[in-house]
């Protein structure tokens, strides 16, 4: 790991200024991904601005929803009563991620800003356009069993690793950010981006902007939700495919639905058309199968990840069954 300057401001303004002064500076919160990448030489910031002492860890009711401070720990959010009652999908997604220890360290903001776990991104001896633009995408013709089936480009086929973000994408969250130019809100679905020709950019955050909070609007999904995470061991592994499913049921009829997938694209993959295909229908496996088929339109596989073309729709069906209480 390279040497770097370390500062630990206690005020938000100071933190943003500390970062703005230096192009090669990074905020550090939990550090669970950044330090991992720094140890491997994938990221080499010259300055770390430790934001852990900023007062940004509150979980609170706000007008029309719940605001979760960017520095709220993943475990604190998952265990929070308000979250468990009103956003059980988010609590489930958080508990599906990482380990108890990591959830005690990782913050909400940091979780969203995780980099991909693509093998090629992680190994500085291998090509990766995200790490080193222009070096090529190692995964495209390489080992790509973990990789994207939606929204990829010929520059990058990596997937976003966060579970929490899949739930937030389903729940129409908004990200509150603050930067040198002031505060702004970014719809969660616009927060992460597709790789296109600039896979080095994971998000639409601008240089120097700090994630301050995530706001989740009130919703109709206090129950009938399920976060399904399919992985290669029973816990503590990244998703092959994950599904955040939320249903509002009137008797057996679906009044509203939210669906998003993880492990399939460079960003949390919201499935609005599949949601539309669910509304007004009876909550049956057959309905879920049809919605899953809608969800999979446009999916395309590479050499090693064709299984996702079957696993993803199956997982959608299973998540919806679980949400509807049919399992």
């Amino acid at each position: 790991m390279n040497q770097f300057q370390y500062v630990r401001p206690t005020k938000q303004k100071a933190a943003i200024e500390a970062l703005a002064r230096d192009a090669n500076a990074q905020f550090i919160a939990g550090g669970t991904n950044l330090l991992d990448l720094m140890k491997r030489g994938v990221m080499q910031p010259q300055k770390l601005v430790d934001i852990n002492r900023l007062p940004l860890n509150k979980i609170e009711r706000m007008d029309g929803g719940i605001r979760i401070g960017a520095l709220a720990l993943n475990s604190a959010v998952a265990e929070d009563q308000l979250v468990q009652q009103q956003l059980p999908l988010l609590a489930q997604a958080l508990n599906a991620g990482a380990s108890a220890q990591l959830r005690n360290m990782a913050t909400v903001g940091g979780n969203m800003l995780q980099r991909t776990r693509c093998h090629y991104f992680y190994d500085t001896a291998l090509p990766c356009n995200k790490r080193e633009p222009g070096s090529g995408c190692g995964a495209l013709e390489g080992i790509n069993r973990m990789h994207a089936i939606f929204g990829f480009s010929d520059k990058c086929i990596a997937v976003h690793p966060s579970d929490m973000s899949v739930a937030l994408a389903a729940l129409d969250a908004t990200v509150l950010v603050s930067g040198p130019k002031g505060e702004r809100r970014i719809a969660f679905l616009d927060f992460h981006r597709l790789p296109g020709d600039t896979p080095q950019k994971d998000t639409n955050l601008e240089q120097g902007e700090l994630v301050v909070a995530v706001e989740v609007p009130e919703n109709a999904f206090p129950k009938n939700v399920h976060y399904l995470k399919v992985r290669e061991r029973a816990s503590y592994a990244f998703a092959l495919v994950s599904v955040a499913a939320a249903l509002q049921l009137d008797g057996n009829t679906i009044k509203a639905a939210r669906l998003a997938m993880g492990g399939v694209a460079h960003k949390p993959w919201r499935l609005t058309e599949a949601e539309a295909a669910l509304v007004g229908k009876p909550a049956t496996e057959e309905t879920f199968r049809q919605a899953a088929a809608v969800a999979m339109q446009g999916a395309k596989a590479f050499k090693h990840n064709a299984y996702k073309l079957k696993l993803a729709p199956n997982s959608i069906v299973q998540a919806l069954k679980n949400a509807a209480g049919l399992a």
Partner: peptide
């Protein structure tokens, strides 16, 4: 990845061994 003759799964996140839940 045989193109490079280099392992791509080479830590305990990519190379899975059983955990408690398994």
């Amino acid at each position: 990845d045989d193109r490079f003759g280099r392992y791509v799964t080479k830590d305990l996140a990519d190379y899975h061994v059983p955990v408690h839940a398994d």
